[in-house]
Design a protein around this nucleic acid. Structure first.
Length: 141
DNA sequence: GCCAACGTTGGC
DNA sequence: GCCAACGTTGGC
């Protein structure tokens, strides 16, 4: 099972909103690289939710409850026959006991090659298993 | 508010 | 196909 990191602007949709909703369709990803990653998401995969803007921290753990599918509100295929706009359904698992800040991640050399650090504009990225374990430990999970 | 680091668009 | 101009994201 894979783990991903999804970014969100908490003023638009926060982990608390996800907890309130119970399940949500994660739509609006338009960046080509982010779409490549989200298309690989399967039911049961985990998602670390990161708040951009003022918070800049991983705040919660969520789970993919429905694998990547074509966004019904933005249908169409790309030239490889994949959904042009891919979405997943996401449900909350639990908030981090301690949010893991971007500053803490950047301060740790083990994260030097992590996409969150290297590709600051990428909104959906895979989390390697070793970094996944580290982040959960740092977050008090 | 600024701007670095991208991605996208359109003229050629 | 190249690249200048423009737009966007998100950290600072």
């Amino acid at each position: 099972m894979a783990t991903f990191l999804f970014k969100t602007e908490p003023g638009e949709y926060s982990f608390a909103d996800l907890q309130k909703d119970g399940v949500t369709r994660w739509s609006g990803v338009s960046n080509a690289t982010a779409l490549i990653h989200i298309r690989t998401a399967r039911a049961g995969d985990d998602v670390l939710l990161y708040h951009t803007g003022d918070e800049r921290a991983i705040v919660g753990l969520a789970r993919v409850s429905k694998a990547a599918y074509e966004d019904p509100d933005n249908p169409g295929k790309n030239d490889r026959g994949e959904p042009r706009a891919a979405v997943v359904d996401l449900k909350p698992l639990k908030p981090f006991a301690r949010p893991v800040t971007l500053a803490a991640i950047k301060a740790d050399k083990r994260f030097a090659e992590f996409a969150l650090v290297k590709l600051s504009r990428l909104s959906v990225m895979p989390v390697p298993p070793d970094l996944d374990r580290l982040l959960r430990a740092m977050g008090g999970l």
